[in-house]
Simulated scan of single mutants.
Amino acid sequence: MVQFNDWCDSADTPVGNHHVRVMRGRVADAATGVQLSAAAVPVHYAAEERIAHALARLGKAGAAQLITGLLPQTPQIRSGDLGEIYATEWINAHSGYQAPIKRLRWKDHRNMAMRGDDVIGMILDPASQRLRFLKTEAKSRIDLRAQTLTEARAGLDKDEGRPSAHALSFIAARLLGLADLPLVDAIDDALVRHGIPLDSVQHLLFTFSGNAPQALLTKSLQAYPGPISQWGVGLHVDGHAAFIGAVYDRVIADAN
């Protein structure tokens, strides 16, 4: 886990019926942020069992080659991937939802961005066996601007604000391989039997940026006219590009 509280200060602000949280990386704890992030990154690209199997068969050098071969090489794709990784980690640690798969394990190519809904968090009600969804758009920018949040809003509003059927089918197929049949069945029921009521959906707009996101997130949530509850979460790290480079450099160094 990234353990944001170990290297960030957080501030929460209500925005009408919605909510904004800003996490600001502490300059004095930047090295801790790099270390914790680098420790979390590899399993977003390959399952722990995959890495352990390669280590047992190929030794440390072979496993290191496997890991580094999965990492994106371009700064832009690294930025986008890390934004999605942070969103996934935040959901699992702080939202009450769980993101049941790590999507980056199924990228078409390491230097390509994933398509579709960025991250979908879920809660399975044990009594009804029905799901609640957290539809998420994650954006990573050196200089976050309103246009980026407009793009994220467009993504959240697709499919009438619901998670797309394609994204849910993708998750269900991956979960079937992990033998998580109760969650597979619940996803299939949402798609086929009873649909997805809007009151079972929440939105998360997650940003990772080198500038302060508070005002932009607040304005974006204030402008939202729909019925779906909104969260805006912004991770603000000074020296955004250098920080991302340091994280991936540390992943490679640790692998070797």
Rank of each mutant, 00 (worst) to 15 (best):
H194V: 02
S200W: 07
R174H: 15
W90M: 03
D108Q: 12
E84V: 07
K158W: 02
G116E: 05
K107L: 15
R174P: 07
A30R: 15
R50E: 14
T218F: 02
Q222W: 06
H94S: 10
M122K: 00
H19S: 08
G69A: 07
G16F: 01
A39E: 11
L156A: 08
S128W: 07
A52V: 00
A246Y: 03
R130Y: 06
L217T: 03
I228C: 08
L58G: 07
H53K: 13
L198C: 01
E137Y: 06
Y97Q: 04
H18F: 04
F206C: 04
I67L: 08
A93N: 09
A113N: 13
S209C: 07
S95P: 04
V192E: 07
L168K: 11
F208K: 06
G25C: 14
T207A: 02
R153D: 12
A11N: 06
Q214M: 10
R193F: 08
A56I: 00
Y97T: 00
G69D: 14
L205H: 02
Q76P: 01
F243Q: 05
Y224I: 06
A242P: 02
K219I: 00
T136C: 15
A241Y: 09
R162Q: 11
L71Y: 09
Q214E: 13
S79V: 02
I77Q: 03
H240S: 09
Q129N: 11
A38C: 01
A152W: 08
N17A: 13
L168W: 09
A61G: 03
Q129E: 12
A152D: 10
N111V: 10
A190T: 08
A246T: 00
G59E: 06
D12K: 09
P197C: 09
W7Y: 11
R57L: 14
D125P: 02
L178H: 10
A154E: 11
D143V: 12
I123P: 03
D199S: 08
G161S: 03
R26S: 08
D185R: 15
I123T: 09
G33Y: 04
W106M: 07
Y248P: 05
H94E: 14
R193P: 00
W106K: 04
A242M: 11
H203A: 03
F243C: 07
L175W: 09
T74R: 12
D117T: 05
N17S: 09
A46E: 01
K135Y: 08
Y248L: 04
I51T: 00
M114F: 11
G195F: 12
D238Q: 15
A93W: 01
G59I: 03
Q230S: 02
P100E: 02
R130P: 06
G83N: 05
I171H: 05
G234H: 00
L58V: 00
L221R: 05
M1Q: 06
P14S: 12
S95C: 04
R162W: 05
D238A: 15
L104H: 15
R50N: 06
S128T: 15
R110T: 05
I51G: 04
G80L: 01
T218R: 14
V251T: 00
V27Q: 14
A165Y: 03
R110P: 11
